[in-house]
Design a protein around this nucleic acid. Structure first.
Length: 486
DNA sequence: TATACTAAACAGT
DNA sequence: ACTGTTTAGTATA
């Protein structure tokens, strides 16, 4: 049950609150003067459920229009004199909607912001509406709620500002969060839609199943609600690229949709979005990487959510506020993403990471950083090199706790050459019995992520050896600079 | 024209 | 039945 709401002990909303004017740093429960001055109009408010007989009645317009008119009338009558002051009276001084000037999106945002964890399930949002917004108070029952609930769902899906995060702990509906990036344009542009649908197509292909494939990325487990600090484990996200912002959009392919996604989409999007790194990899390698990418997709997300959950002040939000493409855009946006992380010019990153790492929500960071590596720019070879050397210092330098922070990839990197004994030639987990990904259960592709990376480095070793033994011996001035991390 | 509300078709759980 | 995603018609600023 939506315990979140109860615990939030957030006072009911001010029907007149004005989201638009709300400073980013402000917390939702804005001071609300007179709350119920707005008497919820009768059940037959603006949204009066007019007789909905047929499916798509010839003229639904008239109906709706009528309702809308009624709404305005009601508003005028009921609200007049009250909320007028509320906030940004759109135009006249009457409310735009029966409940005030807020749009559904505003209300939803407010609901989410108000929640302790900055995330709510659909049902919780409904609940919040009914509890908080006078107008909906008496519209909680199934009969009278169909309309506005439909609108809520519609808004959640439509706006970029809302992110859907898979919620495995409850096994129920997804979490809805606010897009740290703000959702810029608000609604999806064409490209976003395209990606989105593509992702959906993908999503339906492989059931996003698999519990705890991602060892908890504890989202600031201060949450009193549902997930204690224990169940966060099975949390993974499925982002939809609703951002329509430049890079984000493109990159925006957020939805990891769980393990074992097809690469098809990746490739497709790639061509669609334009080239990037992987394109230069050898076919086979590309495929492998692409699968990794899919996993990464799922892993990169936590960041944004973490940022959302972190105190506004924490440097982390810099990510959101900053132009830097959000992690959520992640996977599909390796270049940009990588840059935002490693680019020395991006002053936000270090502090952000620091903030993140020192916060309660570590997992995201490790995942983020390590997993991203393979996506590093450039030709496969270079990228691999990077994987083997560069990132490590960074990670280690940050004082990450292997056990806690880097369950997967990081570990793989920190214990590079798994004892031969432990790592047979076959794709068998090298050591720690970590949760393994159920990639596309395909016989050939069920490689655990970490293992993949292990193998990656192994392969790398081989290559190096080979190079040293052959090419290098030819003395052509090849310059290898490996960081002495190991 | 951009936003927003409403309705509804559909698909997946 | 509930969730989510889309499409479409309409209204309003």
């Amino acid at each position: 049950q939506s315990s979140v709401m109860e615990e939030s002990s957030v006072p009911p909303i001010d029907p007149d609150f004005e989201p638009q004017s709300r400073p980013r740093s402000c917390t939702w429960p804005l001071p609300r003067p007179e709350i119920s001055a707005v008497k919820p109009e009768g059940p037959e408010g603006p949204m009066a459920p007019s007789p909905p007989p047929g499916r798509r009645p010839p003229t639904r317009t008239s109906r709706r229009q009528a309702a809308r008119v009624r709404a305005r009338e009601v508003e005028a009558g009921v609200v007049a004199g009250v909320g007028a002051v509320g906030a940004t009276p759109r135009k006249g001084s009457s409310r735009r909607n029966a409940w005030g000037n807020q749009s559904y999106a505003d209300l939803i945002s407010q609901a989410i912001e108000n929640s302790p964890e900055k995330r709510l399930t659909l049902a919780q949002i409904y609940e919040w509406m009914v509890k908080t917004v006078p107008y909906f108070r008496d519209k909680g029952d199934t009969n009278s709620s169909a309309g506005w609930k439909n609108s809520i769902r519609h808004n959640l899906s439509l706006h970029n500002k809302f992110l859907r995060v898979h919620n495995e702990s409850t096994g129920k509906s997804s979490w809805w969060m606010l897009n740290p990036e703000g959702g810029k344009t608000g609604t999806m542009d064409n490209s976003s839609k395209l990606l989105k649908s593509r992702m959906r197509a993908k999503q339906t292909k492989n059931s996003p199943n698999s519990s705890q494939q991602f060892p908890k990325w504890g989202v600031n487990s201060s949450s009193p609600s549902s997930r204690g600090s224990l169940e966060e484990a099975d949390m993974w996200t499925s982002f939809r690229p609703r951002t329509s912002s430049n890079a984000s959009t493109v990159s925006g392919r957020l939805s990891p949709i769980g393990p074992g996604q097809e690469d098809e989409d990746n490739l497709g999007e790639e061509s669609l979005l334009g080239r990037y790194a992987a394109g230069s990899l050898a076919p086979t390698l590309t495929e492998t990487l692409m699968e990794e990418l899919d996993l990464i997709d799922g892993l990169t997300f936590p960041l944004p959510s973490a940022s959302t959950l972190l105190p506004r002040g924490s440097g982390f939000t810099a990510f959101a506020g900053n132009k830097a493409p959000l992690p959520q855009c992640g996977p599909k946006d390796p270049p940009a993403f990588s840059n935002s992380i490693f680019n020395p010019h991006n002053s936000h990153v270090p502090s952000s990471l620091e903030a993140l790492l020192t916060s309660d929500s570590p997992p995201p960071s490790d995942v983020l950083m390590t997993q991203v590596d393979p996506l590093m720019p450039g030709p496969g070879g270079v990228a691999l090199m990077a994987l083997g050397s560069k990132p490590s210092p960074l990670l280690v330098g940050k004082g990450l706790e292997p056990n806690k922070v880097a369950p997967m990839a990081l570990q793989a990197q920190m214990h590079p050459p798994p004892p031969p004994a432990a790592a047979p030639a076959a794709p068998v987990a090298p050591a720690a019995p970590r949760q393994q990904q159920h990639l596309s259960q395909g016989p050939a592709e069920r490689l655990p992520t970490d293992l993949d990376i292990d193998m990656f480095t192994e392969n790398l070793d081989c290559d190096v050896d080979y190079i040293i033994n052959s090419d290098l011996m030819d003395g052509d001035g090849i310059d290898f600079n490996f960081d002495p991390v190991m």
